[in-house]
Design a protein around this nucleic acid. Structure first.
Lengths: 315, 315
DNA sequence: GCAACGCGATGCAAAAATTGCACTGCTTGC
DNA sequence: GCAAGCAGTGCAATTTTTGCATCGCGTTGC
């Protein structure tokens, strides 16, 4: 794409914050890169970068222009995907930003199924914390975001939502395993492993815990499902997850069957009166036309979720 | 804008339908242009043009790609306009596609007022027939369209509408000039000058005339207001217009005052029961972010209309 | 307080690209 | 069947881009 190189260069310089670093990354000399940038600033008639002693930084005009550049690249990808689709071959690259929850079962399965049908489509998966997923949508580093938390950013369009009741995961022989539903006061005296503070699950738990002063024993905080799962084999304790992360069917009702999940562990739903159900948001950037490959994959995710949780998907 | 030239070249070739003609227009040799196009087709990995004996024509992939190119140019204009606005100077170029109606008073006045405040903004006005205005929005040759006709195209976003009752224009001493409102049967035996078939006014009249078989004397068809107005000085007859075209205040009620309009002519509204009011649509391309200059001008038009016809503007 | 470092900018020559010219092969219209 | 108009190509001239060496400037570290 020779006709886009200068723009790509500006994008990289903006990300690196230094012409020399960007030049290294782009495998050209800093002087060539420097001159391209000067030339474009000249053509635009506006400086795009502030020159600082330690490098460069976008000024306001530059911010606007770089946003334009990124949307051009994203749109070019869309065009190429659409053109490739004309000849019957779905081609393209789908970039997904997701919290940990969907990475466990939903995305691996859905992507594998999709790729079986369209092997020419490649994927990029960024595991995001906090509001990083929204940011990625905005900077066009992600086509689709899966966010288990309230959406704050105005530029995000929510294509579908999935209600998910938080599950309490415990050893199969735990005393609470006989319960159909777990109440917060049941947790009194239990050893708990909680997700880290920025996670959506943690926020829902905290909201519930704030109201009822339950005296619990938080022995660990972790953002790794895998760690928590393995930890339970060594020390009997409880942790929390949402159904899509553990492959449990029928979220809110929470039958506790966790197909393919560790057989020594069981999941039981929290009482919705104690801990409110959370919402998984499937999003893309508002006003954006997704590449064919990404748009169809988005459809696939929603269809999969609708099949698995028929009552809990809203569009 | 060196970094856009190759794309601009493709756009021109698509418009000209021939590499040689485009090369002439671009002041380069056909061979240079030819090779740029081959190179880009190579980079995209897809042919964009069909080669015909008499020139070239876009294939489907090319159509998609050229649409992308045009939207890039339009978006670049938006970015530049926005960047210029940062330094307090409104700069840019506003392209308007309009039927004849708005060209007479609304646009000249509004543009002049706007330019008094922002002299660095230039304008382009295309007088459009039939569906050409919609087409121009789509091909991004127009930012704003003013259309007095039903909107069919799905890609058009209507920012505001103005209801307009058709007026019957006649010599001040005509027998019908004493009426407050004209009914279709009043036109029996009158000599009429009608707008040409594609005009919105004509379509509304035709719809009314179809239902009531009025025997009239159509002596002329014309799409030029100026011609019709002058013709009435030589042969006593009637023609039709909408208020914005003749500067009449308060459309539907139609007081007939036509400020600044030919003092020998008067306008009387048609009875809405006979001829339905028409709608002027102020539109832009759906999903598009207009350049600052164009967006603000759009606001100005709507404000002007709201001031003049407070009851007839919808948004 | 001075030297070393890293940064962006610039002059100049080498390298790479774009361009123009001359020409080919093709189709259409007369 | 010949002239005209079209896209495509080999080759040399030209223009643009790149890399090297170097400058000036501000910060950092001793």
């Amino acid at each position: 794409m020779r006709f886009m190189t200068s723009l790509k260069f500006i994008d990289v310089v903006a990300r690196e914050g230094s012409i020399r670093k960007a030049a290294d990354k782009l495998a050209i000399t800093s002087t060539a890169l420097n001159r391209r940038i000067l030339q474009i600033e000249d053509e635009i008639g506006q400086q795009l970068f502030e020159r600082l002693p330690g490098g460069v930084r976008l000024n306001t005009a530059g911010e606007i222009f770089v946003q334009h550049i990124r949307s051009q690249f994203a749109d070019l990808a869309r065009v190429q995907s659409q053109i490739a689709d004309l000849s019957g071959i779905r081609r393209g690259h789908v970039q997904i930003a997701s919290g940990a929850d969907a990475l466990r079962r939903l995305l691996p399965e859905t992507i594998a199924t999709y790729r079986a049908a369209h092997p020419a489509v490649s994927f990029n998966l960024a595991r995001c914390y906090g509001e990083e997923a929204e940011t990625r949508l905005f900077s066009l580093d992600a086509d689709i975001a899966l966010i288990f938390a309230p959406i704050r950013a105005a530029h995000v369009h929510v294509a579908a939502t999935l209600r998910q009741q938080i599950q309490c995961v415990m050893p199969a022989d735990h005393r609470l395993a006989r319960r159909e539903q777990i109440k917060l006061r049941d947790l009194a005296g239990e050893r708990l492993v909680l997700p880290t503070a920025q996670s959506g699950v943690r926020q829902l738990l905290d909201t519930g815990l704030l109201r009822r002063q339950v005296d619990m024993d938080v022995i660990l905080e972790s953002d790794s499902f895998e760690f928590m799962q393995n930890f339970l084999h060594f020390e009997s304790s409880l942790f929390f997850q949402i159904p899509i992360a553990i492959g449990a069917g029928g979220g809110r009702q929470g039958a506790g069957q966790t197909d393919g999940f560790d057989p020594l562990l069981v999941a039981r739903p929290m009482d919705p009166a104690d801990v409110a159900p959370g919402t998984l948001h499937i999003c893309h950037l508002k006003g954006r036309v997704l590449p064919v490959a990404a748009a169809k994959f988005l459809d696939d995710i929603i269809t999969t979720l609708r099949d698995t949780y028929p009552d809990d998907v809203d569009q």
